[in-house]
Computed example of a mutant assay.
Amino acid sequence: MNTSEYTKVYYGNFILVTRVKDELEHLGIVPIVKDEGESQRLAGYASMNQGFQEVFVHNDELKQALEIVNRVKSEMEATS
């Protein structure tokens, strides 16, 4: 059973995560960005996922956040 109050809504490189984060914040959603690679580096360990980050949002804002993430992903795919 998952008792976390936060859910991961996106995973990607720093630039893409920044774009998603900015869009969420623009609508009043405060995301949490988790960077395992940086945490491992600071602890003195090698990291396989350097530069990749995860974006989490509170479960109360999950539906709206997923809509934003999907829109941003569609926009990024259209410009690729």
Rank of each mutant, 00 (worst) to 15 (best):
N70G: 09
E75Y: 03
R19Y: 10
H58I: 02
G12Q: 03
F14W: 07
F14T: 13
T3M: 12
V69S: 03
V9G: 03
F52M: 11
F52D: 05
K73T: 09
V20K: 02
N70T: 00
K73A: 10
E36H: 12
L27P: 01
I32N: 07
Y11P: 01
R41P: 01
I15P: 00
M48V: 05
M1I: 07
E61P: 00
K21Q: 15
A43E: 08
L16N: 07
Y11I: 02
F52P: 00
R41M: 03
L24E: 10
S80D: 09
E67M: 09
K8A: 08
V33E: 12
G44C: 06
N13V: 02
F52V: 04
K8H: 05
V33K: 03
Q50L: 12
M76I: 15
R19H: 07
T7L: 03
M76W: 05
N70D: 14
K8Y: 01
E77S: 08
Y11H: 04
Y10V: 04
Q64L: 15
S39A: 13
G44H: 09
E54Q: 10
S4D: 14
E67P: 00
E23I: 00
S4R: 09
V20Y: 07
K34D: 10
T79V: 14
D60K: 13
A78E: 15
Q64H: 10
N59L: 06
A43N: 08
N70Q: 14
E75C: 02
E36K: 12
